[in-house]
Computed example of a mutant assay.
Amino acid sequence: MSQPQVETVSTGADKAKLAAAGVLLVGAVAAFYLLNQQDTWVRVAALVVGLAAAVGMFFTAEQGKQLIGFSNESWREVKKVVWPSRKEALQMTGYVFAFVVVMALFLWLTDKTLEWVLYDLILNWR
């Protein structure tokens, strides 16, 4: 029931918005380091404001809108998942542990049997 993929063409405005978001991101990091003589809260505020502006600019571009749409569809799909009850989860965990123990015993027994056949019976090394 997935919708057909629609290919969008990036316009010049979208490319400009993405470039501006990149410039804002680099500017925010640069401002953080260039303001090293200021108080820490001023540096952090400059960084946070710059990052928020970069994220805001990104989400106005077509790629940002697609990301928001993808996130909404993903959340809708997560809501459709039928999660097991606590009892079912504990039972399945017990089955897995039991299988691991049985498989470990089987592999140990196979290893010891092959060791006995090769070293004791065939090669007489012991």
Rank of each mutant, 00 (worst) to 15 (best):
A20L: 11
A20E: 04
A20Y: 09
A21N: 02
V23H: 01
V23W: 02
V23M: 11
V23E: 04
L25W: 05
L25Q: 02
V26M: 02
V26P: 00
G27Q: 06
G27T: 12
G27H: 03
G27E: 04
A28F: 00
A28K: 01
A28C: 03
A28D: 01
A28E: 07
V29H: 02
V29E: 03
A30K: 02
A30Q: 06
A31Q: 07
A31P: 09
A31E: 05
A31L: 14
A31D: 05
A31V: 04
F32Y: 09
F32G: 02
F32C: 03
Y33W: 08
Y33P: 01
L34E: 05
L35N: 15
L35D: 15
N36H: 09
N36C: 08
N36A: 10
N36F: 12
N36K: 15
N36L: 08
N36T: 06
Q37Y: 00
Q37V: 08
Q38V: 10
Q38A: 14
D39E: 10
D39K: 02
T40Q: 07
T40R: 01
T40I: 08
T40V: 12
W41P: 08
W41Y: 10
W41C: 02
V42A: 07
V42R: 13
V44M: 05
V44E: 00
A45H: 03
A45E: 06
A45S: 15
A45T: 14
A46T: 13
A46I: 10
A46H: 13
A46F: 10
A46C: 10
L47H: 01
L47N: 03
L47P: 00
L47M: 13
L47E: 06
L47Y: 14
V48A: 15
V48R: 01
V48C: 08
V48L: 14
V48Y: 03
V49G: 08
V49D: 05
V49F: 12
V49R: 02
V49P: 01
G50F: 08
G50W: 06
G50S: 10
G50T: 07
G50H: 12
L51Y: 11
L51V: 15
L51H: 01
L51G: 06
L51R: 01
L51Q: 11
A52D: 01
A52P: 00
A53M: 12
A53Q: 09
A54M: 07
A54E: 09
A54D: 04
V55E: 15
V55A: 12
V55N: 09
G56I: 01
G56M: 06
G56S: 13
M57C: 10
M57D: 02
M57T: 15
M57E: 15
M57N: 04
M57W: 13
F58L: 08
F58Y: 15
F59V: 07
F59I: 06
F59N: 12
T60L: 11
T60C: 05
T60S: 14
T60E: 05
T60R: 13
T60Y: 00
A61V: 10
A61D: 14
A61T: 10
A61M: 05
A61W: 11
A61F: 09
E62T: 11
Q63G: 07
Q63M: 10
Q63A: 14
Q63K: 09
